[in-house]
Design a protein around this nucleic acid. Sequence first.
DNA 1: TCGGGCGTCCCCCGCGCGGGGGACGCGGTT
DNA 2: AACCGCGTCCCCCGCGCGGGGGACGCCCGA
Lengths: 223, 223
Amino acid sequence: MTLTVLLADDHAMLRSGLRAIFDTQPDLRCVAEVADGRAAVTEVARLRPDVAVLDIRMPKLDGLGATEMILANPANRTKVLLLTTYDTDEYVYRALNAGASGFLLKSLPPEELISAVRVAARGDALIDPSVTQRLIARFAVSLAPPPTPPELELLTAREREVLHLIAAAYSNAEIAAELHVGDETVKTHVSRVLSKLGLRDRVHAVAYAHMNGLVQTRPPGLR
Amino acid sequence: MTLTVLLADDHAMLRSGLRAIFDTQPDLRCVAEVADGRAAVTEVARLRPDVAVLDIRMPKLDGLGATEMILANPANRTKVLLLTTYDTDEYVYRALNAGASGFLLKSLPPEELISAVRVAARGDALIDPSVTQRLIARFAVSLAPPPTPPELELLTAREREVLHLIAAAYSNAEIAAELHVGDETVKTHVSRVLSKLGLRDRVHAVAYAHMNGLVQTRPPGLR
DNA sequence: TCGGGCGTCCCCCGCGCGGGGGACGCGGTT
DNA sequence: AACCGCGTCCCCCGCGCGGGGGACGCCCGA
């Protein structure tokens, strides 16, 4: 089965270079060449190629915007590969966010570009190695559990329990009801928590708890 | 300049297969073969190869644990490539977290494995395409800006500003000082914020702000 | 056996906070 | 010209909260 490809780049020279690369492969067919992002979006919608190879820098609408528009339309099954000269961070994140299947540098050897197209077409994704290492570093920190501050160890189990409820904006009375104890007891716990953590009031406690990851505000598994 | 490689896998057959692959390259030298993770750690520390290729499943200490031990030691400059038969999610995350330079499936063509070693040696990273696409999806959600609740649109710019300060646990007086206005004014703003957002008190406001991503509790740029 | 940490309950006091009003000047649209 | 949203400032009142005390029973370890 042959794969159809759309090329988008404002430099005719680069387009013809890419086309020449693809033409060496009998199973790849370059069905369209366009020079700007807007044309890329309309042609993708019309021709439904398997893969669109977009330059980031293009007139009218850049590759990122085009990617977003293409992938925002669920009728499109086209995979998007982004091509760029320099690997600037925010490009990568925005591209991945938009759902691009690949982010490649123009320095990539031709044969690897070809394999990238095949990889993208079968639904896998692929990022230029030099970008990957930064992506990993970035991803790792997002996975890293927030460092538990040492002063938290000072709290007893009960006090930590109370702190969690404080973080969820429970009032003293609500905490008392939740824990089935008197509200005077809760006051004692709250006082101890505040003094042990060096916090002024429960408002600070709420902020403290959230900033130290005691509350899962992120999708589960992540954070 | 020649790159030195350490191989770790409990199957002798696979080791010799890998060795055969590397031997086809004049600039790659396989300096050690070990059969378990513990041996991998000690041999890496002794021989300081440029790259260590570790199987995930190994006796005594698995590839992930070995990776963590190797990379935890700053004296090691060895890059780690992980090899596995199946791409289970948690493996990937733990591997990346430990700082592995690559995560590859054993189904990878030999020549790509060789290029992976070179990529890793020069400090870049590389993830198997089939894994990358899931990684991207996961990363994208971590990048995705938390959905801004519509009721936040009700707030005026000033009120949003006040809400941010509330979220940072500022008292009314502190907000007044920060904004160079009277504290009576702040009280008005706070009241409006609470009523517009349907919140009981500032404690709820703090929790609300944090849960809706109004506060960057994550490393800048991410979140 | 005697502490001491922990969890529980109780007292009083001061105050920051939130709700309820009202008021005024400014800049925009109508 | 009239209007209204916005930001600013002011009043009073009630209450939840935090600080500072004390007290009692439990269990565990010295």
